[in-house]
Design a protein around this nucleic acid. Structure first.
Lengths: 331, 331
DNA sequence: ATAATTAAATAAACCGGTTTCGAAGGAAGT
DNA sequence: ACTTCCTTCGAAACCGGTTTATTTAATTAT
């Protein structure tokens, strides 16, 4: 590997001078600069980021944490948005793997890992709920951080999320406009921020529209087709059945499977509306409240860059959008 | 951030001694070691990876390049396999973003980026075909690299791939066993290694089984539903129609859409067999030749670690597996 | 008691950059 | 001609670690 010393030697100047040329600082004569640039090019020299990062404390690297990013349809697209913005600004992405630490490592966590690798900032995604102790040290550190879907703020922390409450309202209002009055909801993971927000929106709309609220039409589960399938099985056994089901996309798809396997049809027998707009839902022509996944990633990135560059920042809530597929019908 | 000097000062020893403790080297008395460890723990000290990497040339970071990783269903799962193995061994993953460089940066490519960030090795994925000049400098460098689905080898380079040829054969033989004789193939991107291999396997099987080969049943396209849809439209207009279609999953799903929209059914009117076994295909109960995506990621990681650790290595070809869904039928 | 051996600890150089500060040299001002 | 002021450049310190070589101290051998 060719280093700054090699270049200095070949150009017969000091390494300080080469450094100044690299960084385009003043204090270097035109002819010297010319000469150094020429030699840099001839030797295909690129300054080592690691060494540079050691002295400048700036690494042009953004850390990414997330327990379930890679398993998750949703975050794959968020990642896409992050890559676009960060790549454009010259940052690379450091994905922290989830090694199983033994107990003696409990204090080696987000903050320490970030400091350790000198990342300029970090995006936290895929964490469903806040475990105070877990994020405490990170929040109280100097490290710029942006959370996706967790409303944490601090002097160097902010977040982006979709308007989950508003989106859920929108779903209910849409079903209402189609004539539905009895609406079931299969919720995502209990305690998860987004699931809770959506439930709140659902309840607000139900109340505002004066719809019947039946606790037997409410289900908890995780973010899986399985949950949708099982919950729908239970709905099918009820005497008083709802006419429409509201659930996150993957869950909604599971519900649709259960409906079809029972010999019934969507939307003829049940209307189903999802939330998310993930790839899979699109294949079912699912009517859904779409989030802008790529937009979330982009927004998170821009927000993080603002924090890093000491510009003003505040949380960003992205609007949702109704996508009419073929799983809801007027009754 | 607490540094090695802070620890040295507090423990009243030299930084060399602290370093030896960190690395568990000999030459440190038991009581001194004890004392240093205690102070390290009290101050929640973790040695800075960047500084360490600068002097040791080892960063515990694996680079990942790929033009389309994040857009791609397939590579999302490969990534999962990589994360599992690399995380387990204590490596983090550096995802190189794809900045648009201006022309003056042509020589700043894979090799330079890797050297720049001191990655210990690199996994190249999502590159469909070999552009010699593109990979030349990387292959001739000291940087351990593993390609996924491109058969490049070198003194520090190897690759992993699925048995694409064998898999394609398997698909044809399966259709044959169901009574199919007229088989169409919609190929992936022209010139792409995997697409070519599969076509070769297809042809070998057709020949071996003495099946009719009709060039009108052969289609080129890209890896998209659109390709499947358009090609199937053409097939439906043929006088002599095939009875079965072989295509990569996403393409197969597009074909199924076209068949259904024409008022026909799968597998009643056409049998369809895919290749890949991506999530989307599973929702269509697609019969397919499955690759082991996670396994590919794991194999690539282990292979790379072998190269890094100077152990013997050779390319790895993973077997494929027939998954019987509901899109093929006996005729 | 002295020399030889071994273990423990440190000083100093190094990794590849950046940054501060002072020296050298030329141009301008008086 | 002498001071003053820029401009250009390089020496040296620094970032936070590792590693080599050497000093110091304690142990053992003679």
């Amino acid at each position: 590997m060719v280093t700054i010393n090699d270049i200095a030697k070949k150009a017969k100047v000091s390494k300080s001078t080469v450094s100044k040329v690299i960084n385009n600082y003043s204090g270097v004569g035109d002819d010297t600069k010319e000469k150094v640039l020429k030699i840099m090019k001839e030797n295909n020299y690129w300054p080592n980021s690691v060494a540079r990062s050691l002295s400048t404390k700036k690494s042009y690297t953004i850390g990414i944490f997330g327990p379930q990013i890679l398993n998750n349809f949703f975050f794959r697209e968020v990642f896409e948005g992050i890559e676009a913005v960060m790549g454009d600004k010259g940052y690379d992405l450091l994905y922290f793997t989830n090694k199983q630490w033994d107990e003696s490592w409990v204090d080696y966590s987000y903050k320490e890992k970030c400091e350790n690798r000198n990342v300029d900032g970090v995006i936290m995604m895929g964490y469903g709920k806040v475990n105070i102790a877990q994020f405490d040290r990170l929040l109280n550190s100097e490290i710029p951080s942006v959370f996706i879907d967790l409303d944490l703020v601090g002097s160097n922390t902010s977040y982006v999320t979709s308007d989950n409450t508003g989106g859920a309202k929108k779903a209910v209002e849409y079903l209402y406009s189609l004539g539905h009055r009895k609406i079931a909801m299969i919720r995502g993971l209990n305690g998860f921020k987004v699931a809770t927000d959506r439930f709140v929106g659902f309840q607000q709309a139900v109340k505002a529209l004066n719809l019947p609220y039946n606790s037997k039409w409410m289900f908890d589960g995780d973010y899986s087709m399985e949950t949708g399938y099982r919950s729908m099985e239970k709905i099918l056994k009820l005497d008083k059945k709802p006419t429409a089901i509201f659930a996150e996309d993957l869950i909604a798809v599971g519900a649709i499977k259960a409906i079809r396997e029972a010999g019934l049809k969507v939307p003829a027998d049940f209307s189903v509306i999802g939330f998310d707009s993930i790839e899979v839902g699109r294949h079912y022509n699912l009517t859904t409240i779409a989030q802008d996944q790529i937009g979330l990633g982009q927004a998170a990135s821009k927000l993080l860059l603002n924090i890093i560059n000491q510009k003003s920042f505040s949380p960003i809530i992205l609007p949702t959008r109704l996508i009419e597929g073929e799983t809801c019908k007027k009754i």
